[in-house]
Design a binder for these strands. Structure first.
Lengths: 106, 106
DNA sequence: CTCAAGGTACGTCACTCATCGTACCTTCGG
DNA sequence: CCGAAGGTACGATGAGTGACGTACCTTGAG
């Protein structure tokens, strides 16, 4: 099956409400915050050890992707993920940084 | 007779997830953004002309209050509302500003 | 080749949420 | 005093959500 099935919204289409909804979930926020630690690094989805079932993880990957928070690349039996830092910072300057900072203890 | 039935969380109890959920709704976000324009101004809830029924408005007032976004003061048959700017900026520096900026078209 | 591992698709389920209507309470203006 | 206006309480409802299990697909390791 050809890839390309992964639908990503264009930067201009990213909706603030969808972004905030996506970030409201603790698991998804954790993922985004971890990605924001190294904004240019592509990470394997599987490297986030979320304590939920596989299909639930797939659900969260989709929510993050369709909200425009992350860019995902299908590599056969693996899925790579990268924060859309540039797009997000252009559309919503400082938002991800604020959420990341607020999510850090201390 | 108001017996202070309005429950407000302490600043330390404000949960980021609840704040983001509250901000994810367009109507509530609009209210918060408008309040953020004049952070020290107390406004009448009725001054926000939301196109929903009374009971729905009451619902949103409660969500905003219980998330810790606003402080509400009962004045008999009126309800005053003020953004909890200091608490929010201490807990989540820059968050409200980022959301407000992102919500402005311009 | 075989099979384990990562992901997806689909159906389900319980719960939440935004909305509404109606009834009721509280104040203020006539 | 009476009624209008702002809010609340309660119940109902339809949509959405996060979770699960199972079946299936794709790839790389053995």
């Amino acid at each position: 099956m050809a890839e390309g099935a992964l639908h990503h919204p264009a930067a201009e289409e990213i909706d603030l409400g969808a972004v905030l909804s996506a970030l409201a979930d603790p698991l998804r926020r954790r993922v985004v915050v971890e990605l924001a630690e190294r904004p240019d690094e592509e990470r394997l989805c599987a490297s986030f050890r979320l304590s939920v079932g596989k299909s639930t993880r797939t659900h969260h990957w989709r929510v993050l992707r369709e909200a425009g928070l992350v860019y995902q690349r299908d590599a056969g039996n693996r899925l790579w993920m990268r924060l859309r830092s540039e797009d997000l910072d252009r559309r919503f300057p400082g938002l991800i940084a604020a959420v990341a900072a607020a999510s850090r203890p201390s």
